[in-house]
Design a protein around this nucleic acid. Structure first.
Lengths: 184, 184
DNA sequence: CGACTTTCTGATGGCACGTTCAGGATTTTA
DNA sequence: TAAAATCCTGAACGTGCCATCAGAAAGTCG
């Protein structure tokens, strides 16, 4: 799985084959099929692992915040911090999620996950509107903007490895703090 | 090319083959190679066509605005309007851009295009900061947030065809108007 | 030490892909 | 209408892919 992450993050999803992963792991191609059954199961295993790692790192810090404004700030901070700390796993995850498409009919296996991420944000936003911290706005639209900003980061990271994540984290928190708060 | 757009938008980039496109166009596979030389050239032709269509539709309206605030608003409006009007071409374009990766070394053919898009936004933002309409913020960070929000839309559109683009356009313009303006 | 399970190998089959090509069909030109 | 240019076909080739499998290798246990 480590080598699979490495391969996907380096080569991209499309160019990653079991043979390439096997070479990285110094194994024969058949050996991977033996352990994981199929390529899809290997991919699924990688997704589960990284997603678990991410939520374990982020969720506790977020729900511990006293106000919605703080929760939103910590949401952005922990997300970007995770990207800095676990670059390769994250890039692999993004590669997989953006490239995996269900058949013509099936809705695709990871769209549900994205929907869940939006719902998480909406919950924080609804909280802030409930307490009066936030102004009135459409929950879904604001959630899309927030998640969109976060999802844009991996591409930047891929292009420029020296990208300043801390600066972006500060800017995004002030940006969305201003954009969500009740106006004076 | 029309059928190529249709195929990519419907099936996704990975599942689109020359054979599938040929079937849609009621042609034989060889015929496509005859006209375009290679698959890459066909893809390139699609990208050029759609990109030209997009810039022709959006750029004049944006540069005609008197203030940076207006320009930013129109930037968001025209972008989302284009997505509503030309859904399939846009989805195809996004599929291609996000899925095309250069070799391990080459930087990828379309990353430059994305960088250009960010630079365009930064120019508007710098204008607004120069005139004093906008507060001080990091240009790149704000541009990433804006572009990220716009780029998140196609995925939504794919998931929910009845998505309310006009509502989103209104919400995003107020969001970023508030986020960029000089504070009272 | 010998039997059993677990792990691995490397060749194999079947498949889809992009591309090529000789030749037939169609349209344009003279 | 005859010749020439253009367009198209459908089969063929080479490649890379995932999955399979008989058997070798390594580890485990009575």
């Amino acid at each position: 799985m480590e080598c699979a992450i490495d391969a996907i993050a380096t080569l991209g999803y499309a160019r990653t084959s079991l043979a390439k992963i096997a070479k990285l792991a110094k194994l024969s191609p058949g050996s991977i099929s033996y352990h994981f059954g199929s390529k899809d199961e290997l991919i699924q295993a990688v997704v589960s692992e990284v997603a678990k790692l991410a939520t374990e790192m982020m969720e506790p810090a977020i729900v511990a915040q006293p106000t919605a404004t703080d929760a939103l700030r910590v949401y952005l901070e922990t997300n970007l911090e995770f990207m800095g700390r676990h670059r390769k796993p994250l890039l692999a995850l993004v590669e997989i999620i953006t490239h995996a498409r269900g058949g013509t009919d099936t809705p695709g296996p990871y769209t549900a996950q994205h929907e869940l991420a939006l719902k998480d944000i909406e919950r924080v936003l609804a909280w802030g509107q409930g307490t009066g911290e936030f102004r009135e706005f459409d929950l879904r639209s604001m959630a899309i903007a927030i998640r969109g900003a976060v999802d844009a980061v991996p591409a930047q990271l891929l292009r420029n490895p020296d990208f300043d994540l801390e600066l972006l984290a500060r800017e995004l928190t002030t940006l969305f703090t201003i954009a969500t708060r009740r106006q004076p």
